[in-house]
């Protein structure tokens, strides 16, 4: 027990240090507001991608409508803060809650479907949501909602991303529910035979994942300050899936890496010369395909980055370094 608390405190201290480092970098202008923006964007989409990884990577349910739940969260929170003056944090909770409830309502019938049929159903659901928003004047229709306050600061995104990470990590690796969810992915029929109510666990995972998408949507609305239905169409769902698959389905740290790379990459390509700039999206496409070809299981596979793993890694490097330096020294002496 003591050991647990020690680790717990260590992690919290680690988080605070990381947060402080970021803040110092922001305050001193080492990271300018452009990078601040990109980092916040990564954080927001990370929350959504973590939710998607729970559905796609851990539960094995093929969904293509994740962006729709982001739009539900975005619209819920934007309407609440803008039209009703609800406090931002409360609006975020409402965004996550609405998305999760809708996920349960939708999930109950359609999660009985499997594989590609589920994929097309969720994709259809996403399009239905989009068309619905376009046709409701109160939601601004195609003209979207502008004038949303800029509330999604680095702090709130950082805390919420860490929280979502911890929730999924705890759920998957340290609870019986998590083992049930994993069993659905591994072999649904066997899981059923063992007395696991697979539909129930699929819905639980779907609701939590979509709730996170809703949360991310709420953050996004107060980050971009403008939302329109076009921003959450099926290509956004594909994009989110790209983050998860590139990082590794079933690896949360992989999702972090995947999201960071794929959001930073097109921005980084802006820095290139004019000739290359014209081919920015072409280069992006080539890099995406080659990353999948060279690492089909994703960057992390199903592994996680751990302290032990890192120690091992750095230990190896150190040993290599030491052995080479001693050999150099030896050479000198000789």
């Amino acid at each position: 027990m003591k050991e647990t608390y020690k680790k717990y405190i260590k992690v919290v201290i680690g988080l605070i240090v990381a947060y402080a480092v970021f803040q110092i970098l922001f305050q001193t202008g080492m990271i300018n507001s452009y990078y601040n923006r990109i980092i916040r964007q990564i954080g927001i989409f990370l929350i959504s991608a973590l939710g998607l990884n729970l559905i796609l990577g851990f539960t094995g349910q093929f969904t293509l409508g994740h962006a729709a739940f982001m739009s539900i969260g975005a619209y819920t929170s934007a309407i609440l803060t803008r039209n009703f003056g609800v406090p931002f944090l409360l609006a975020l909770i409402a965004a996550a809650f609405t998305a999760a409830v809708l996920a349960i309502i939708i999930g109950y019938p359609i999660l009985r479907l499997t594989g590609d049929y589920l994929a097309i159903c969720t994709l259809g659901f996403g399009e239905i949501v989009k068309v619905f928003i376009q046709n409701v004047d109160y939601l601004g229709g195609a003209r979207g909602i502008s004038g949303i306050e800029n509330k999604s600061g680095f702090t709130v995104i950082f805390v919420l991303a860490a929280l979502c990470f911890a929730i999924i990590m705890n759920l998957i690796h340290h609870s019986s529910k998590g083992r049930a969810i994993l069993s659905v992915k591994e072999d649904e029929i066997a899981a059923q035979a063992m007395g696991i109510n697979t539909t129930k666990y699929k819905i639980i995972a779907f609701a939590i994942g979509c709730g996170m998408a809703g949360l991310a949507g709420g953050l996004f609305a107060h980050f971009s300050q403008f939302i329109d239905p076009k921003s959450f169409d099926f290509s956004k769902s594909f994009e989110l899936m790209t983050y998860v698959v590139l990082g590794g389905m079933g690896s949360l740290s992989g999702t972090v890496i995947g999201t960071s790379i794929l959001i930073a990459l097109p921005e980084w390509l802006r820095g290139l010369s004019d000739v290359v700039k014209e081919y920015r999206m072409l280069i992006y496409a080539i890099m995406l395909v080659s990353m999948m070809l060279f690492r089909p299981q994703g960057i992390m596979g199903t592994k996680e980055i751990t302290v032990a793993g890192l120690k091992n890694f750095f230990g190896k490097i150190k040993r290599i370094f030491r052995s080479s330096s001693t050999s150099v020294n030896k050479g000198k002496e000789a």
């Binding site: 093929f62 899936m241 698959v245 999948m292 994703g298």
Partner: peptide, 8 residues
Amino acid sequence: AKETLLIT
């Protein structure tokens, strides 16, 4: 995995 192919 199916998703990998889909991304490709």
